[in-house]
Design a binder for these strands. Structure first.
Lengths: 233, 233
DNA sequence: CACTGCGTTTCACTTATTGAAACGTGTATT
DNA sequence: AATACACGTTTCAATAAGTGAAACGCAGTG
């Protein structure tokens, strides 16, 4: 029962991922990237196309289709953590002017574990961080990755300067629930998401970082409270 | 060469769509909804799961996975029309306080043609229309559907009161480019997207509708100009 | 003009998908 | 309690269905 996966579907999904990653791909490129024969790639891409998951542009290249957009938006709307976190994001932006994000652990894919940005509230500064929603970041070397891994110091937040991108500072705090065994004993904590801000480093300084870090940690706790209220009564 | 589609993949994608539509689905429900045998549905769902496109929640039901969220966000970021339309959405919201949207024709699926909401800017009124991004609406009976079909009157915008939802008024205007044959003659127009606002009907009146309609039509034209600048030089 | 790479189609091989059946379990029904 | 039912899961033999090498036409290149 190790891997009762269907190869055809796996290949098709891989193809779909390639197209979305690249933005647009020619048939030959897609076939090379997934190590499929051209005929197989063509057949699968056509299937994806007829279902609306990819489409061919004017130049004949394959692009992400609208069905992906639709399903992605639907999926997002079903992620309750996002709507719960939205007020917190808004308050963080209001207080700091920087873009604020919600991160979760991404599906464990090739290349190790990653975090995924699933929601954002844009900052108000004219020089601000543009959207990273949909982007993944490695767990090591990123602030949100650290808190998602459970490596949060007692301060309650993590700061990473120039981690995943130069000249950018990230501050993240975990939204973590306690896990209980059936008998009620606490078995540890599980980080369900992270709240983070991403800002140009030149605008930061130790005091500001401390203030923002404490704010993010506090808001993360507020989100946790809202989350528990929704899942307990 | 009519339909060289692979059945396995079609079924898997259908399953994926069901899960995303429903938000969460039990195996038996998914199998029923797609008319697959339980064993086949299980195998395919497991394949989707191992690729991160669906996941099982604590109760064992299937939910949309994070991979869908990721690919959807990536796909959205590659839709240039959205970034081009964002300033227009912002101005519309600023001027009217109502939520503003970008619509496109959805992939032609079962149940006739539909429009798809792909971007939104939230209104500022406290009673406002919440997000419809990812939602589809029938072409008939909706304002955005009408303009996407090319049925825009000379006024330049379409108003539908209580069309797809009770107590809601929608106003839409087309973003349309002229089509040219290789020899340069105009062969017609193609609507690439629609700009629209959706608001509670009680807040509307003839003068307001006229003002908003003209604003939306004007902004749609602004987006068109930006679009042409990007695709011509 | 020969050459290379692309998108496409064809086709024989057999691999890999399929669905009925059977099983264990938990939840309604009687 | 005993029965019936629905769900998730596994097994397995039949064969439907996916596969890739090869060949084709076309366009761009040296």
């Amino acid at each position: 029962m190790a891997e009762p996966s269907t190869r055809t579907v796996e290949r098709a999904l891989q193809l779909l991922g390639s197209v979305c990653d690249a933005g647009f791909l020619t048939l030959a490129d897609a076939a090379r990237g997934t190590e499929l024969s051209a005929s197989t790639a063509l057949r699968l891409l056509r299937t994806l196309e007829s279902a609306g998951f990819v489409r061919k542009d004017d130049e004949g290249a394959y692009r992400p289709g609208l069905r992906i957009v639709q399903l992605g938006a639907q999926a997002l709307s079903h992620e309750s953590i996002i709507s719960l976190a939205e007020p917190a994001l808004e308050r963080i932006v209001e207080a700091t002017g920087e873009s604020a994000y919600v991160n979760v652990r991404a599906h464990h894919g090739p290349g190790g574990e990653h975090g995924l940005y699933i929601a954002m509230r844009e900052g108000t500064h004219s020089v601000r961080h543009s959207s990273w929603v949909g982007r993944t970041v490695p767990m090591e070397g990123s602030a949100s990755g650290a808190v998602l891994s459970g490596k949060t110091p007692k301060a309650g937040y993590v700061v990473v300067d120039r981690g995943v991108e130069a000249d950018v500072t990230a501050i993240a705090a975990p939204i973590a629930v306690e896990m209980h065994a059936p008998d009620g004993t606490t078995t540890g904590t599980r980080v369900i998401a992270a709240l983070s801000i991403v800002a140009p480093s030149y605008r930061m300084n130790p005091e500001k970082i401390k203030a923002i870090g404490e704010l993010v940690a506090e808001e993360a706790h507020n989100v946790l409270t809202a989350y528990q209220q929704e899942n307990q009564p």
